[in-house]
Amino acid sequence: MNSVYDKKLSPFQIVMLIVCALLILITVTPMMNIVAVSLSGKNAIAKGLVKLFPREFTIEGYKMVFSNRNVVYSLFFSVFLTIGYAILTTLMTALAAYALSRSNLGGRRFFMILITITMYIDAGLIPSYLLVKDLKLINTVWALVIPGLISPFNLIILRSFFLGINKSLFEAAYMDGCGEWGCLFRIAVPLSMPSISSVMLFYGIGRWNGISDVMYYENRSKFYTLQYQVKLMLDSISIDYSAEEMQEQLVTPENVRSAAIVFAMVPMLIFYPFVQKYFTKGVNIGGVKE
């Protein structure tokens, strides 16, 4: 029996494979360099000897990052904030998307237009700041949650998915005594798990990488996310140690900087492969309405 691997590749496929391989190379090479620098000695880094593999192997950079309690605290805070945020935002988005997918909702076209407009017109930083300040959210964890509770883009994906579910399923549920809540949580949500997972991933990645709202809305370190904490470290790193320490230092700013980047990158690298299959599937299905 012939498998797909036995088929002869067309010239177009070969070109595409080469392009994809190059893209992978372009993506992976800087990451390898960052990892190599994070594990290399200071002289090798200063002299530009580190390319894709560590030279004068050392883990001093990681020791410095891990020994910073602020960074470790921010890691835990970020993990919990990201998970809580992803669940809450997905729930809110699903509620809105379900309502807007029901044909018996009056004015849903008006609401959809209103929501879509916000995708293209952004009020900007200062009005957003004034709003968050007037809601008394500055220096609270809610400043990192409430402004992003529903993303129009994700709402449209979920709504499209809900619209694609066969209406007869909902009719059968109504016949069996389900209300709207029952239809949402017993019919729509279970059938939409790929889309919901991908939306949750969008929210999670957005929150994990988000820096600007932390920078503007929070000035207490307990609300600093890992990415922001790493940014502060990277911006300020100088390794200006005292006389005795300078002689003993085995690291350079580049070393610590790279270790911090790897440290912030790893949780997402571990998490991503597990949900990646839902990610593509969800977006594909959500984007098509029968």
């Binding site: 605290y73 835990f76 805070f77 919990f80 904030l81 998970i83 809580g84 669940i87 809450l88 729930l91 300040k133 008394k136 500055i138 220096n139 609270t140 964890v141 809610w142 949650v145 000035n219 207490r220 307990k222 609300f223």
Partner: peptide, 24 residues
């Protein structure tokens, strides 16, 4: 699940705008 994670995040941060300084 939502309550659990947000509660943990709240616990880590001491929740809202309590004592300490604020830009405002």
């Amino acid at each position: 699940i939502v309550a659990l994670f947000l509660a943990t995040a709240m616990a880590l941060t001491g929740c809202g705008n309590g004592s300490g300084n604020s830009g405002a």
